[in-house]
Amino acid sequence: MAVVTLHVDGMAVAVPAGAPLLQALTAAGVTLPTLCHHPRLSPVAACRLCLVELEGAPRPVPACVTAAAEGQRLATDTPALRQGRRLIVELLFAEGNHPCAVCVADGDCELQDAAQRVGMDRVTVPYRHPPRQVDASHPLFLLDHHRCILCSRCVRVCDEIEGAHVWAMAERGGRTRLIAGLDQPWGAVDSCTSCGKCVAVCPTGALVTREDVPLSPWPGP
C-alpha cells in the first residue's frame, strides 16, 4: 500500500495514497462538520461543509471525495472557509422548518451539532418557512419533510446497502424533495423492507421511528 505524506494546517500526516482527504484530516486531529457524508455510503460532496483549501487548487475542494496525494498542503480553518461553513448551515436552517425546541431529534441531531460547531448564533438569511408535509403512512416510521435537508443518505443507504431503492429525489432547486417509490405514500411502497436503515442514517429528525413520536389524533379546533 503506497503511503503519502501531506500537511493539514501545517501538521504532517501519512495516509494511504488515494484515500479521501477526510482521512488525512482525522489523522491530523481535525474534525469538520459533515452532513451528507457517511462512512459506509458512497460520497456525494453535496453539503459542502467539508470544503478545505488545497494549495494550488483554484477553489476549495470537498475533503470527502478528494484523493490524498503526496505533498498536498491543506488549510481547514481559514476565515473564508469559516464564513462559508456558517452560511451553508444557515441556509439549511432557513430552507426547511427546524424549530429545534419541538423536534424529536433535539439534542441528537447532526444539523444542530453542525450549527454549534460553526458558531451559528442566529440565522442571518430570511427563514423561508416552506409549507411541507408529514408522511405518516408507514406503520413503523415517519417522514417529516420539514426537517429534511436533502442530504440523500437515505437514498444511498437504501440503494447501496439494503438494495430496496425506496427513496429518490424529485423536482429540482428549492423545490427538491425526497420521494418514496414513485412519489407514493411511504406506507404504500411495496419494495420497502421496513429495515429502518434510512432512519438510522438520517442526520436530522426527518426520518424517525414512530415509537419516538407518540401520535394521537388531534381532536381538531
Binding site: 453539503c47 452560511l87 441556509l91 439549511l92 430552507e95 430570511p126 429540482r172 432547486g173 427538491t176
Partner: peptide
Amino acid sequence: CAGESCGKCVPCRAGTVQLAD
C-alpha cells in the same frame, strides 16, 4: 439559476433562492 439549480448541493440550491429574494 435558482429555478435551474439541480438541488444537490446546499449553496446553489438554497443560496440562489436567497440571492434572488
